[in-house]
Design a protein around this nucleic acid. Structure first.
Lengths: 220, 220
DNA sequence: TTCAAAAGTTTGACGACTCAAACTTTGTTG
DNA sequence: CAACAAAGTTTGAGTCGTCAAACTTTTGAA
């Protein structure tokens, strides 16, 4: 079985591959993500390659093997189920939950995970709107487009927040922009590089377009 | 903060000190408990002594310092709250829960622990009847005597099972001898070294006295 | 096209934790 | 009380994960 550290690297590589247009992860970003020096990341990648979890040609991009993807989705499933539990059962703050799940995800047996999943009613997404991979390792990726892609007057439902940064999440939550919430696009300002949303009658929020790009929504 | 390994050693030392009449733990038993060789245990004890968690004169017994006890009770609190959750909320098997809690106890932040405790209604004992130390590090130790200490005809309530062995717990649970259950001492056989209990009308169980010594009860 | 900066790699070293095996001390018992 | 087993310790070595710093390759801008 993969060690805790190995699982963290694999999960980070998975996320980075999703984010990057080339579908490959880089050593420097990976090192940032798992919070080690790039030398350490390089040597870990060698171990991961030896374990057949990763393909990493010298001086080139990192990709997950089929086995690697399986591990990543398994960790992600654990992570997201735990986050859901922490928010919906223990009422922990939406923004604080990530780090906690980060530690718990490595300590949960398959049996306990399944019981927890059952207890939660087999949710399909976590509190950020991220899809929970199935036990067999399938994910139904995003059903929405970035807020910044909609036109003025569009009525949309927030479905997902693509960022785990605490400050950002705190801001988003404070503005009432959690998944499930419906908003109307009130104004778009390409020059000002911003977007204004009406959340409820009389309450509106203005986001930079880079922030709006990290919030996915779908037409309602 | 104490590492996971350190916490495990401290917890084991605490338990061994309780069990032993001298109030001291030995290296060989400790090594068994944490599943390492005795050489490894010795070198770890040195580290614990350097950390001021343990007093261990050369070739003599191991005892916890005040700080060590604090750590032990903290770990034990986490352990027992988690066990309670696993049994009462997730309905995991009473006997399986120990190993799971063993891993989870190191991954829980104080805040999450408190929320979990609150969710469970601030229980005072875990499913085995072991007392849960308070957040400030106080334990109210056992309120019962071994089953084997009662006389024929005594009506008693089971309060605690002093053993984490899976097979033993499985047997105990199957016999219906969980904490909270009331039983009557039907027969004592000093020669046969056994005790017979009536659990319900028409259902009785016979235990060896060594088994009965590990089950605590109080008069009802 | 060249050449610096960015990305990636290597090296040597360290701390935490472990083992096997040789060794020393303690305590029990014939 | 001698001797021997059990308990405890030491030694030398290995793995995992990490760092700092020197090094090599790639790449993108002048």
């Amino acid at each position: 079985m993969a060690t805790e550290t190995v699982e963290n690297y694999i999960k980070a590589i998975y996320v980075l591959c999703r984010e990057s247009p080339s579908g490959e992860a880089g050593v420097v970003r990976l090192a940032q993500e798992v919070d080690v020096t790039k030398g350490t990341a390089t040597s870990m990648i060698k171990r991961l390659a030896k374990l057949k979890l990763v393909k990493a040609p010298r001086y080139s991009g990192i990709t997950l093997t089929t086995m690697g993807k399986k591990v990543a989705l398994d960790v992600l499933r654990r992570h997201r189920i735990i986050e859901t539990f922490l928010v919906s059962t223990l009422n922990l703050d939406w923004a604080d939950v990530h780090e906690e799940a980060e530690r718990l995800e490595h300590a949960l047996s398959p049996r306990t995970l399944d019981r927890l999943d059952e207890f939660l009613g087999r949710p399909s997404t976590d509190p950020h709107g991220d899809p929970i991979p199935s036990a067999s390792g399938k994910v139904s990726e995003l059903r929405g487009k970035a807020l910044s892609a909609y036109i003025k007057g569009a009525k949309v439902e927030i479905v997902r927040i693509l960022d785990q940064d605490r400050a950002f999440l705190k801001f988003v939550a404070q503005s009432g922009l959690k998944p499930g919430v419906c908003v109307t696009v009130q104004a778009l300002s390409p020059e000002g590089d911003s977007i204004t949303l009406q959340v409820k009658r009389g309450q509106s929020v203005t986001l930079s377009s880079s922030a709006a790009a990290k919030i996915l929504a779908r037409l309602q």
